[in-house]
Amino acid sequence: MKLRRRSETHEESAMDLAPMLDFVMNLLIFFIIAAAFVHESGIRVNRPAAKTAKPEDKGSIFVAVSANNEIWIDREHVDIRRLRGEIERMKRERPKAAVVVQADRDARAGVLVEVMDQARLAGVADVAIAATPQ
């Protein structure tokens, strides 16, 4: 009796990676676009509490003043002399944005007033101070 042999050609089984790559690319694009709309001040501050605090609805420009009176905008430490230009640049990107100053409760009031003044000089009419709701 003669045994039959299978042909010597072996097909390699492979998984098609195209759908998975499409999915990963879509995720990457989503996170890049989402990250472009998030502008944070760059540091965490210990905000004071207020009974009348309410969330800001509009897209805002966040400026933080730390406990040691450093000024941060868009995750970057800035000098008070550069602050007006930075706010003007961000205002061109988002013309209807308000400025929200996130000041630490231990920051000097004079620095807070200077930051608010620079925001108004940059053409922003709506300047608010962030507080934690009680």
Results as ranks from 00 to 15, higher is better:
I29D: 12
I29G: 03
F30V: 13
F31C: 08
F31D: 07
I32T: 13
I33E: 15
A34M: 10
A35P: 02
A35F: 12
A35L: 07
A36M: 11
A36H: 13
F37A: 11
F37Q: 09
V38E: 12
V38I: 15
V38A: 09
H39I: 09
H39D: 08
E40Q: 15
S41P: 14
G42I: 13
G42A: 10
I43N: 08
I43V: 15
R44V: 08
R44S: 13
R44D: 10
R44K: 14
V45W: 02
V45P: 08
N46W: 01
R47E: 11
R47F: 01
R47G: 05
R47C: 07
P48G: 09
P48E: 13
P48S: 10
A50W: 02
K51S: 12
K51F: 01
T52F: 00
T52V: 06
A53S: 10
A53M: 05
K54F: 01
K54R: 14
P55D: 11
P55L: 11
E56P: 00
E56L: 11
D57M: 09
K58Y: 05
G59A: 12
S60P: 00
S60M: 13
S60N: 13
I61T: 04
I61E: 02
I61A: 06
F62K: 09
V63Q: 05
V63H: 05
A64R: 07
A64W: 08
A64G: 10
A64Y: 06
V65R: 03
V65Q: 01
V65A: 06
V65E: 03
S66H: 06
A67D: 14
N68L: 02
N69W: 06
E70A: 13
E70T: 11
I71E: 05
I71L: 08
I73L: 10
I73N: 04
I73W: 11
D74F: 13
D74M: 08
D74G: 02
D74L: 12
D74K: 12
R75V: 02
E76Q: 14
V78R: 12
V78W: 04
V78P: 01
D79R: 07
D79V: 09
D79W: 01
I80V: 14
I80S: 09
R81P: 00
R81Y: 05
R81E: 14
R82H: 07
L83T: 05
L83R: 06
L83D: 03
R84Q: 14
G85F: 07
G85E: 13
G85C: 01
E86C: 03
E86A: 07
I87A: 04
I87M: 04
I87D: 02
I87E: 01
E88D: 03
R89E: 10
R89K: 14
R89Y: 11
R89P: 02
R89M: 02
R89S: 10
R89C: 00
M90Q: 15
M90I: 07
K91T: 10
K91P: 00
K91D: 02
R92W: 09
R94E: 05
R94W: 03
P95E: 06
A97R: 05
A98L: 05
V99R: 03
V99Q: 03
V99S: 05
V99G: 01
V100K: 02
V100A: 06
V100D: 01
V101T: 06
V101S: 03
V101P: 00
V101I: 15
Q102H: 07
Q102I: 01
Q102V: 04
